[in-house]
Structure formats: C-alpha cells, structure tokens
Design a protein around this nucleic acid. Structure first.
Lengths: 229, 229
DNA sequence: TAGCGCATTTTGTCTAGACATAATAGCGCG
DNA sequence: CGCGCTATTATGTCTAGACAAAATGCGCTA
C-alpha cells in the first residue's frame, strides 16, 4: 500500500493537532520523510508545500520546515452572484432596476477608481428580492470610458453584476466589509427604519489594470456572512 | 530557456483576460499543452491544477479543461490576532480584562457548541485598545470541560486569544460577520452611543471535533474589513 | 572580535515515464 | 428504443533522478 501525499498531509497535521509536533518544532527534511513514509521526495514535497500554503507550517531553504508558531489562518469567503446566493437558499429571486443615469463621474468616484477628470459613468441603482422581500440594495457605477457598450445594455431584466461577469472574463477587485446605519434611501428600499444597522460591502473592480466598476451593496437587516476554516 | 509552470499559468490567464479564451472554451489537453510549451506534462499539470484551485478553470477527467463560465471567486480574509492587527497599523496596543467568571454554560452557548447539560465555562470580557482608543470589545466563552487549565490561566496581561493560540496547536472554526446595533454594554466600552452600527464577528472553534471556545467581537464604529482578490 | 565570503544544506522545480481513476460516449443487447 | 456495459480519454498521482536557488552558518581574514 503506497503512501499518498494526502496521507502525509493528514499524518503531519494529526501530529500537530495532538501536540506531538509543537509550534516552532523542526520537521525532518524531505529526504528523511520520504524514507519514513517510503515514497518519493516529490510526494513529500507536495504534501509539505500544501501544508505551507494552508498556513500550518513554514518552510525556508536550508533552515528547514517548522510548525508555525501562530498558524496563519485565513477564511475563504465566497463572492457569489446575488441571484445564485438567493436561489441556493431555495428562495425565489426577483430583480428590479430602480434608476439609470449617465453622468460624469463625481469626485469621490474618480478618486476611488483613478478615473480622469470628466470621465463618463453609468450610475445604476437596483434591488434584489428573495421570495418577494428586499434582500440587497445595489448602488453601481460603471466606467463608460472602459466599457462604452454598457450604455447599450438593458439592465431591466438582469442585474449589472451578471452582465459584467459575462462581459469581463477575468478581473481583480478590492473589497471591504463594514457596518453602516441605513440612510433614508436604503431604509426605504430595504423596508426598515432609518439608522438600522446594515451589513455593507464595497467593491472596486479592475480589468487589465484599469478600473471598470465600483459597487456598494447594502444587505437586508440581520444579514450574516458565514464561512468556516 | 525553459517554460516554468508560472509561465504557463500567466499565459493561460492572459489569454483568458484578453478574451482569446472565452468562458466555457475548451483548453487543449495536458499532452498537447506540454508540446506547445515544450515541457513535461507534470509542469503543465501543476499550472492547470493551480488555476483550477484558484477558480479560473474547471477540470473534469475525460471531459477536459474549460474556462469557467462564471469564475468562482473567493476573497481570502486573514484572521489576525488583534494585537498584530493593531501593531501592523503602527499604533500602540493595550489590553484590558474587564470581567472573569466561571459558570455553567447558558442554553444558547450549549446549543452553539454542542455542550452537555451543566457544562462548565469560563466567561471573559475584554477590551483591546489602539493608541489608547477602544478598538475591539471581546466577549469570550471557553469550555472548561475541554480546557480545564484555562481556569488557572492569567488573562490580566495577555488576552484569551493569544493564550488559546498557544494552548491549542490547530483548530477548526466557523465564523460569521454581521452588522449589529450597539447595546448599552458595547456602547459604554467602545465609547459610542447606543444603537450605533457596529461590525461584529462571531466565531466558534473546535479542536479534534470538540468545541472549545466561542467568541463575539464588536469592532469600533467605522471599522472595515478589507481584502483584495 | 567583527565582518565577509563561500561551502553546504534544504527546499523548489523540472523531466520522462508509469499506473490509477473518473467520466463520457458509443456499442451491443434485450 | 432504451438501458447498461465497456473502451477510451483526460486528468490525478507517483517514481527516480537531476539541477537550480536560497539561505544559513562556518571558516577565514582583518
């Protein structure tokens, strides 16, 4: 029975969790491990590389591999499309375009997306419903300099998010989560009173180094973003 | 000049971003790619495996490799130790224990952590300061059944988080982010008015399948959790 | 003793080849 | 025609060996 890289990962992780390998402890080098597990060094390498990637251990050439003193942990939070998020709960999804306007980008937006003075932008506000109840209020700005044909798109049937995902194959983004008080606008749309605490996310998206869109999302009162690690 | 797996990743990703490989498109199989890039199949495999891991492409045995229709995106948010988070901004960190009490676990806690009836728990409340200003209010529960020597630990100098990281080598957690209104307690500690919207995280932690701790963290008004992907 | 440079160690990556495994598509049978 | 089996194909993983690159730590020198 051969030892797989999964076996090795599991074994090392088990040794760490039960304390046999204490934080800071030096783990034998790959050649020795390959002998103990009776497998090729490449197999050990893959196991250790992935453990390092996951933040469990720390590797340095010549210095060797050690159990991290404070395991570097990161939660992976999925960035879903609202429609999928809602449909995944079994609820019926409905979308509604509230407003649409072509303007020059306001100062704060130019600042955030590094747009030129006088840049044109498409400003949309939308509502996403789950089983008829407001779920998310969306305030979206799209750079018309970068995406001129966004002006021709029809956002009455499908939201800008889905249009963008289809239009832009791959992108980079900066995202921020926070808590804000509902202003009159958000309160009206999300059917809550003003000053209700709302979970908010802001996202700026770039494509090939150029800013293409900024979006601010207010979630319905009580919304929680959950994950595990 | 050899082709590295990084070169291949970069090239495929570039082809996708500039639209040469459309979403849903079939990518040649590894053997063909190995020929085009003039390298071993293992090299191509590593490149493609990592792209799949990152959610850019989708692989299925026999069916082949395709560009994902809607790239599965996930943000990786780091789970820092408060002290490190504060010190990273250049601010001075200060910690203060507010209360400490050994009790039987209340119903809601037993429910969350699957504890037995009558389970003992250590309940701590603490404050973390950045440059003298309150930064985070911590409400921590530790299972004394699982971690009996937590009762002997001195939490007046260092917070429970740091103690736990040192005591428990590795663990699993469930984490939730949300927005809540400051109650009288939180408002008093975070120097804000009641009903101020606060960013809150809740975390349940398990070790070897057993629940060890639950913590609720309220961040100072205006706190934002930022990341990029 | 302090500082510099180089040898050595350990991880990082690649190769060529092999077998394992999942999943499809087509074939044959009822 | 529909169903199930099977051959085929692409990915998944492993091996043994090689060279590359980083970083430590030792030895040498000033």
């Amino acid at each position: 029975m051969a030892t797989t890289y999964r076996d090795i990962k599991a074994d090392i992780l088990a040794r760490i969790t039960r304390g046999a390998l204490a934080p800071g402890a030096l783990i034998p080098n790959e050649l020795e491990l390959a002998e103990t597990y009776d497998c090729a060094r490449a197999t050990v390498n893959r196991a250790m590389r992935e453990l390092a990637e996951e933040g469990v251990i720390e590797r340095k050439r010549k210095a060797g591999t050690r159990v991290r003193l404070a395991p570097r942990r990161e939660a992976r939070v999925p960035i879903p499309i609202v429609r999928h998020e809602i449909e995944a709960t079994g609820a019926r999804y409905r979308y509604s375009l509230l407003s649409r306007e072509e303007t020059t980008a306001p100062d704060w937006l130019r600042d955030r997306l590094s747009l030129l003075y006088g840049a044109r932008a498409l400003h949309l506000t939308c509502l996403h419903f789950a089983d008829g109840a407001p779920y998310q209020y969306e305030d979206r700005w799209i750079s018309l300099d970068m995406l001129p044909h966004a002006a021709d798109a029809d956002f009455t049937a499908t939201g800008p998010n889905e249009w963008l995902v289809a239009a832009i194959p791959f992108s980079n983004a900066e995202i921020a989560f926070g808590a804000v008080a509902a202003d009159a606008d958000a309160a009206a749309h999300l059917a809550c009173t003003e000053a209700t605490p709302l979970f908010q996310t802001e996202r700026s998206t770039w494509w090939q180094g150029e800013a293409i869109t900024f979006v601010r999302l207010w979630f319905r009162p009580g919304y929680r973003l959950e994950t595990r690690y």
